[in-house]
Design a protein around this nucleic acid. Structure first.
Lengths: 192, 192, 192, 192
DNA sequence: CATGAATGAGGATTCATTCAT
DNA sequence: GATGAATGAATCCTCATTCAT
């Protein structure tokens, strides 16, 4: 039996229960004790893996960010046509959030909280994620308008988030066609 | 000079103090005692105006929502051309959030928190705000695509928020031209 | 119109609502604000009549004590036969408490609270109430056993209270006969 | 010597500290913080053992009730003559209260407070304690009058309480003979 | 006299964190 | 490593009391 694996599994169990609980009850509403209980470990154990609740949350952010990136670009074919890659990426991202609404909810909370400051301490780290790089590529190669990455990124991510949020509401479900319409709007808007 | 504040003024002072502090330190990070101190009243006084911290926050949401709506549609001329009204409304909203970043920050926190459930208890109340009505009007009158209000609204508000967020970052300032480019993207995307 | 009367009436209204509320919710559970509301006056008004909540309660005790005494001895004929007077007094007292259970409840709370110390500061004031005097008379005149007033009084009042308490329970109602049986027990026990 | 207290011992320490303080200062007058300090634990620790102050008080009631019952019936010989058992039980109970006046004081406060409702929710649980059963036995077997248990119990307990209260006053001490006189009164009153 | 808004000390409760086992 | 009892600082909220009107 591999103890290393067990340790990683335990860490993941802590991540998953944190994600679910924070998504349901908010940062404030989820005590460490409850996270521990849900994850099937003792409170003290969490402090073996994370120095503090804050660190747990920041680590969870990094963990989730990575998982999203992996999922969004899993089948990404860098040699394919840019427009197709754009559509696929946008839809993948929306679908991921719709499938894992806790992640969307956690991200939204995270970005609107004082925690962000711990992550984005200076500009250098911004826009280095795969999505920003993909969008920069589109600008550079002339597929999309020569606008600031801030504008393009706002159009791309703003609509992803807004769409995914509505897609997880209990009152409305987007069809595949809706999504294609939606990404069509964006593409029409930012394509060169 | 009248040092004696009316009841409404005191309530507003509490609102403003709450807004600023929550925007800086989050729901969790701003104790009632601090809100009171900043507003220049005693802790107990807050409980004359609001039954609980939760109620204060929910009321602050309504108050801010109203102020935004007033500001966005202040000079709205319903008889003007739809495209112009669209551009003006989108830009007004972005500018409001950029001018009052605490409101944006508070809204983002509010929408990602368990509080929303207290406000949006059923579907009937959704999409009845002035912005949604304005967008519905555009769909009905054939100025914008015949898509679900969820889609149109996501495109409109998602980009407003995403743009305003970037506009309040310390590293980037949108010019008037940037904003017009941005709203151009959306309009190109959703116009009929 | 007589303002003096209005003042007295207001004081009585405060007493009555205090009595009812304390009986229902306890000393702890009834804030001055609630007493004021029930009595139809402002909180501040209560402080015109009573220096503090404590004083209000101690005054209410004296007021209720007086009312009980008046009711119990209203038709008392000091020239009647002792045994009959004993039976009548015991039954009157029980009936009073059963009719005004708030008074019983308030008294019980009062006697078990630190307030008593404010009333019975030394022995001199004890056993000077009419009931004690009536019992002492019985001992002196040889109708009841030559025991300490503490014993006789315990037998008399202990059974009154215990009987009245059971009589106000929702599950049991004493008949006139029950009461006569009960006082018979006491009389049989303490008569000479 | 074992400085480490077991869970049960710590709970008992909290009980004893609560009993003493409530008896001296009343429910209202004894903050959790003081209970904790007297018991030699941290405030938070109390909340490991009891969900709330209310629960602590209700649990303390049960704990004390059990202790009293154990003490009163410790040497009870069910095969002895009924009259003797009656005298012994009555006197044991008075002596217990006189020895542990905090228990008497706590009970009196408890019974006159809104807490009772949490304990006695329906009639079925009443009169099932050992004392009531003992009195019912006396009625059934013809040693005492065929009166309702409410009446008999009122006569028994009412006099116990009233006697014990006077016995704990600083101004009067019952002698063994006084107690025998007192129980003689009751017995004479309720015996068949 | 009467009012009730304002005060702020005090109290119940929570929860991140520690540490002896 | 893992546990979870213990800690106590921090927070929300209550309410007796005051005082300007």
């Amino acid at each position: 039996m591999n103890v290393q694996l067990t340790s990683a599994e335990k860490k993941q169990a802590i991540f998953e229960s944190t994600l679910r609980l924070i998504s349901d009850y908010g940062f404030h509403g989820t005590p460490i004790s409850q996270i521990a209980q849900h994850a099937g470990v003792a409170t003290g154990t969490i402090y073996h893996y994370f120095a503090s609740k804050d660190e747990l949350i920041v680590e969870l952010f990094r963990y989730s960010k990575q998982k999203i990136q992996d999922a969004t670009f899993r089948d990404h074919d860098a040699s394919a046509e840019y427009h197709n890659r754009f559509v696929t990426t946008w839809i993948n991202l929306v679908k991921y959030y719709v499938q894992y609404p806790q992640v969307l909810s956690f991200f939204e909370q995270f970005y609107s909280s004082p925690y962000v400051k711990e992550i984005f301490t200076d500009e250098t780290v911004c826009f280095q994620d795969e999505i920003s790089l993909f969008l920069k590529e589109g600008i550079r190669d002339g597929y999309i308008k020569q606008l600031d990455i801030n504008i393009i990124s706002a159009a791309f991510l703003g609509t992803v988030i807004a769409t995914a949020k509505r897609g997880t509401s209990q009152y409305f479900k987007f069809s595949e066609e809706d999504l294609e319409n939606m990404v069509g709007i964006i593409w029409d808007g930012i394509k060169k």
